[in-house]
Design a protein around this nucleic acid. Sequence first.
DNA 1: CCGTAACTGAAAATCATTTTCATTTAGCCC
DNA 2: GGGCTAAATGAAAATGATTTTCAGTTACGG
Lengths: 150, 150
Amino acid sequence: MQNPPSDYDAKRVAHWREVLRANGYRITPTREAVLRALSAGNYALEATEIFERARRFAPHLGLVTVYRTLDAMLSLGLVERVHCTGQCSLYVAAEEGHHHILVCRKCRRVWHFSGDDLTNLMNDVANESGFVIEDHWLQLVGLCPECRDS
Amino acid sequence: MQNPPSDYDAKRVAHWREVLRANGYRITPTREAVLRALSAGNYALEATEIFERARRFAPHLGLVTVYRTLDAMLSLGLVERVHCTGQCSLYVAAEEGHHHILVCRKCRRVWHFSGDDLTNLMNDVANESGFVIEDHWLQLVGLCPECRDS
DNA sequence: CCGTAACTGAAAATCATTTTCATTTAGCCC
DNA sequence: GGGCTAAATGAAAATGATTTTCAGTTACGG
Ligand SMILES: [Mn+2]
Ligand SMILES: [Mn+2]
Ligand SMILES: [Zn+2]
Ligand SMILES: [Zn+2]
């Protein structure tokens, strides 16, 4: 009758499972452990942190599988890379649709936002430079509500 | 009477030399070779590429010195890091003042621009999220005039 | 069930960056 | 134009993250 408290987002994991399967990937216990580890999605994590978390669900998991699953998920747009001053190998669950990220520089909590409109800027820069602009990459950095107090 | 064609920006090198000196760094032939290698400033370069270029000016140069000089220049804001999809360890000469970068994804040519105004967006996101936003990273990616044709 | 291509973890290989250390040198003071 | 000394140097070793290899295992369509 009681639901055990879950430290992962079952709904999101189910969705990811479908996307992976639909793209020819097999659903294995180890792979699912990585999905669960990432599904909370509120923090930018290093590969080793994902590894540690995922091991709770699949103790014999190897770090290699984390990297391989991340590759698959990156190519399907299910996770995205988070860039930082020093280290640029952080990962976080991606939201659907066009959006960008605001990261807490202290605890790496992630806030997703959309609604940026850079078309004017990009047109100006394209005209001035002669480049064809294909993509824009925007990330905000700051302190989350909890970290700014302490 | 003739000036040899120089593959570096002597003026910029002179300026960097002054900034380094003013901050307690010594001017050595190897360090200056790295300055020259970076001074053209139109391309985002990997450490090893800087190394190769700098070796033309100081053949016995070690790669370690490239890293050490890059650290010094980064901390003084003379070069900046360029982030890419795969590799985030590219460097390019920084312009003065607030600006951002447009990079050619094929040849890594860099165009510097300014004039972005994200204050409205940042205020909205700050209010919604509760974060204090301290910094914004913006980078455009595309194809330079030459690469878009070929 | 079966067959097979996909997936797995351990170990080794690779690659970028940092540390160590003995030697050299830039820049300051006579 | 010498010295002096802390800063800088390069070779080599250490580190750390990621990738490759490979022999065994497994998901899943038929
Ligand atoms: Mn956008
Ligand atoms: Mn800006
Ligand atoms: Zn925080
Ligand atoms: Zn180009």
